[in-house]
Nucleic acid binder design. Structure first.
Lengths: 221, 221
DNA sequence: CTTCAATTTACAAAAACATTACATTCTTCG
DNA sequence: CGAAGAATGTAATGTTTTTGTAAATTGAAG
């Protein structure tokens, strides 16, 4: 999987545990404190960060916030020995992606890391507040689920992925419906109408533009 | 990690000690005697049992044997004030996983518990109280055994291991049924229904989400 | 032979989808 | 400019697909 993982953890024993766990699965880099971590983080971003909450210099909260300033989407797993600390972080809603309390099994750890990497890879964001989550087959506008059906999802996903470019009707049919592409009923327009409706319901603007004679375009701002 | 630990101990003072030690780390349930313990154990298995040898009704040996009849793999730590008793249990080879003699330090206790949990190879999901135990092919919700059949176990295990990600029907078939994947009868849906039923019976919520046209997803919270 | 898991069957319910028909808008060219 | 034709918008409706579920059947283990 070739993923690079940064781990911030001051306890020697636990660092060894990580070492054993990830050996041959992921490439890891350990840091004893927040300072060392950021020195490296600035230079090269990893695929994922594992963060202990209790650290000598900065605490985990601070590190997490700083990470988020730099990279909004970096997958971060928070680890703590105390479950109340975990709930504290959750409560603060600092935007960690996952939480584990010690002790955890090695298998669980690996599973979590994989899941979070997978999520991160599939996450797509677009400038104007639309988030496409392929994991759950949902598209959100400003955090609100548009509540799309599968066809609608595929359609909007395609348009967003080519934001700013007009996509021909023919291509839309091909990509969304597959090759047995239906000649001419108003199906496509129907779905577009539906999309517009749902986007409007969630407070979104006129982002799908009709290009007469060609197809549709998702407006890039 | 939300591991649930059952402790059988008649001495009030020591119970308080346990309480302090595990506070915020594990969820514990205390029992004063073997009878009370089994009443609860039948209903819901914990992740680990701590057992004092000297008890009013049944002695620790008997309890251990009965536990082993029911659950061969359950991690059990035997505790005693007398070191010769400990050697006796060891000698009898009743299959306890670890032994401690009183007095013990809180730190040591926690360390032992962690080690034993890890050794038990428990695969634990945090967020929603589901514990997958691959050794005994059981899945627990808040300590309660869901009582799954093999297919159900495999299915839920797969879904949990990919929590938050939608798993396609095709993949579910492949992973759970093997490559000779059955085209289309309602088998998969049946099992999902069964799972939902059993989860509900144990007080679990709506964790398996249908993604129409794609498959199912174990909701990650 | 009984039991329990797994599968299949059959049908109900729901959701998604396609189609029709008509309205509207845009284009262009007389 | 303005009317005809073409492309798109959309409401209403009917069909198809997909999923849920109860009950029957198969099959293996004991």
């Amino acid at each position: 999987m070739e993923a690079l993982i940064y781990i911030v953890e001051d306890d020697e024993g636990i660092r060894e545990l990580y070492d054993g766990a990830f050996e041959g699965v992921f490439v890891t880099k350990m840091f004893e404190n927040g300072h060392d971590f950021f020195e490296c983080f600035e230079k090269a971003h990893p695929s994922l960060v594992i963060l202990d909450i209790m650290l000598p210099d900065m605490d985990g909260y601070t590190i997490l916030s700083k990470i988020r300033e730099i990279d909004e989407k970096m997958p971060v797993i928070i680890v703590s020995a105390k479950s109340d600390e975990i709930s504290a972080v959750k409560g603060l809603n600092k935007g960690a992606d996952d939480y584990m309390s010690k002790p955890f099994s090695v298998l669980e750890l690996i599973a979590r890391v994989k899941t979070n990497l997978r999520r991160a890879n599939l996450y797509v964001t677009n400038q104007n507040g639309f988030i496409v989550d392929k994991n759950v087959y949902k598209i959100f506008y400003e955090g609100k689920d548009l509540g799309l059906t599968l066809k609608e999802f595929k359609l909007l996903k395609l348009l967003i992925s080519k934001a700013g470019v007009t996509v021909e009707r023919e291509e839309l049919f091909r990509e969304v419906w597959g090759d047995g592409f239906i000649g001419e009923t108003r199906t496509l327009d129907m779905h577009v109408a539906q999309l517009r409706e749902k986007i409007k319901e969630c407070g979104g603007g006129d982002v799908i533009v009709t290009v007469r004679g060609i197809g549709y375009r998702f407006e890039m701002k």
